[in-house]
Design a protein around this nucleic acid. Structure first.
Lengths: 186, 186
DNA sequence: CTCTACCTGAGACAATTTGTCGCATCGCCA
DNA sequence: TGGCGATGCGACAAATTGTCTCAGGTAGAG
């Protein structure tokens, strides 16, 4: 689908990333550019809407938690602009309730961070029912996923091990031990 | 086929409960009868379909885990019989991945057991948009994150446990055991 | 029909990893 | 200086995994 067709203005499918985490946008942007998308980024709902109104993107990646407002309203608006837009909702604070809402509002899929670009790709392809294209890549191993997640919560909490352990509902001693090990590669 | 129960002697809205837990069916049945529904129960997908084909219910409560098959296929079929049916999916093994799938297949809502009759009622009424969903304050626990991740990979792979275990680089036996446990609450 | 190749649920037992406690240090701060 | 919370680490029991092994079940090939 990389070169699905000779579309109107661009040879690459347009993809809008909306997330208030600048670093995350940056990284994702690079990874997806490499995969053949024409990327644009926005960090607020307003910016996102302006961009979308100027030219509606074919794909969109929206973070659930955008400053004050919820990314859910953006999903709805993008959908109204163009029902054909494929939207993946992304969030670091996943919950079933918001997932249900997101899908009802028209999101194509809903993923919890951390995710990698391949998983997002897979989410776009995904259709209801079954039959997915060969899920090519190697998703992160559970160990790796855990590591990344812990690191995120840890930095969000000023590297306070005790607090992080409480939030993650795990014992401080255990967290210590996990941190002592090096991040498994793969 | 849009409407039913024209000549049916029942003046109450019909509601089909599908769950392989007999006790659960019994309890729920009583509670909902008291609330003014005309209840029928099924414990397998086949029974459920037979009942639904005989007279399509206006409401349905479907358990995700029905013996071997997934309740998801039933949701789809009920939907095909009558797109107006309001379906609530219920499960003791809730995950974002299955919630997403259920909603895409046309479920009205998705709830995690344990639930009480009032919650189910509310779920039937519910429409998109208005819900005041608190964007969860706290991140998932590592255990929960792992559960969600496993569920996701699992549904992406057609619920094939062996394949999922290989992809996740974990032993099949271990995956079996993890799946046997309920997702941790919180 | 039989054989093959997988997938699945489960029991058993050892190898590891966690859960818990306890204790000694430190940095902060009133 | 005492109270409070964070941190590193030893030790031992409790719980979880890694492995192996069986015994079905199913779908396709020959």
């Amino acid at each position: 689908m990389i070169e699905s067709s000779l579309t109107d203005d661009s040879e690459y499918p347009s993809l809008l990333i909306v997330d208030d985490d600048l670093v995350f946008c940056e990284v994702l942007s690079k990874a997806l550019t490499k995969r053949g998308f024409s990327i644009s980024c926005a960090h607020t709902i307003e910016d996102a809407l302006n961009l979308a109104e100027a030219s509606t993107p074919e794909y969109a990646i929206v973070d659930l938690k955008l400053s004050s407002e919820s990314g859910l309203v953006l999903v709805e608006k993008l959908r109204n602009l163009d029902p054909g837009t494929r939207i993946v909702m992304l969030t670091g604070y996943a919950s079933i309730a918001t997932a249900v809402e997101a899908i009802k509002l028209g999101a194509t899929h809903y993923l919890a961070k951390p995710v990698d670009a391949d998983e997002i790709m897979a989410a776009f392809e995904r259709t209801v029912g079954e039959a997915n294209i060969p899920i090519s890549a190697h998703p992160l191993s559970v160990g790796r996923l855990e590591w990344e997640y812990i690191q995120r919560i840890l930095t969000e909490n000023d590297n306070n091990i005790s607090v992080t352990a409480r939030i993650l509902n795990m014992h401080r001693r255990t967290l210590q031990r996990k941190l002592a090990k090096r991040p498994l590669r793969e």
